[in-house]
């Protein structure tokens, strides 16, 4: 396999294969915590940290524990355990240092464990056979792409709270229609740039 340049991986993770708008990974938090910018930013920070750490740790576990012992079939179970431990760590830190953020994130903080975006990064790293540096860069890039879209989405939703629309479109349908526009922009702008 041809070595992929780090810059290409970075662009891939942030824009071209954006996790939320192109690959549909991590949508629960996308529609759940984007009602205001502050909690969206807090959530994104936590996800960036967990994603980068998960990409690093799971690469080490996969390459130095599972492959030598020929137990690759246990990959899914061991990745989930790694992610759950990391999320627990983040939860302790946030609860101790930023209690207000902890309250506003609510159920979504422990749910990062079952956020498909985090497990998605790890699985995509394995399936595209990235080396250590590439895995870490892809983890960071995916986190940044997640952050950008979360901030855009929460900004738009905050401003559109008082828009006069039919009551049955309010809430989730409205969020999905905004996401349609954002996704269209991402598809049209970034798929035409060859990297």
């Amino acid at each position: 396999m041809v070595e992929k340049a780090l810059f290409a991986i970075l662009m891939d993770g942030i824009f071209i294969k954006n996790f939320l708008l192109i690959q549909f990974l991590g949508l629960c938090s996308f529609v759940g915590v984007t009602k205001d910018v502050k909690s969206a930013a807090g959530m994104s920070g936590a996800v960036v940290f967990v994603m980068t750490m998960a990409a690093t740790v799971s690469y080490l576990i996969y390459t130095y524990v599972l492959v030598p012992t020929k137990m690759e079939f246990l990959d899914l179970i061991s990745f989930i355990v790694v992610i759950a431990a990391l999320v627990q760590l983040v939860e302790f830190v946030v609860r101790k240092n930023i209690p207000s953020l902890y309250r506003s994130l609510g159920i979504f903080l422990p749910l990062i464990t079952t956020n498909c975006a985090v497990l998605g990064v790890v699985l995509l790293n394995v399936s595209s056979e990235y080396n250590f540096i590439q895995s870490v860069v892809f983890g960071i890039a995916a986190g940044l792409g997640y952050t950008i879209v979360m901030l855009m989405m929460s900004g738009i939703r905050e401003r559109s709270t008082f828009v006069n629309i039919p009551s049955s479109v309010r809430g989730l349908p409205q969020a999905f229609l905004i996401a349609t526009m954002l996704s269209m922009a991402f598809v049209n702008y970034f798929w035409v740039i060859p990297i």
Partner: peptide, 25 residues
């Protein structure tokens, strides 16, 4: 072609959800 690209998915589920909400109301 947009419908089988990612935006089509968001559009379809947004409209379907609005219809379901309307019927429920």
């Amino acid at each position: 072609t947009t419908m089988i690209l990612p935006p089509g998915a968001f559009l379809t589920i947004g409209i379907l959800m609005a219809i379901v909400n309307y019927q429920r109301a």
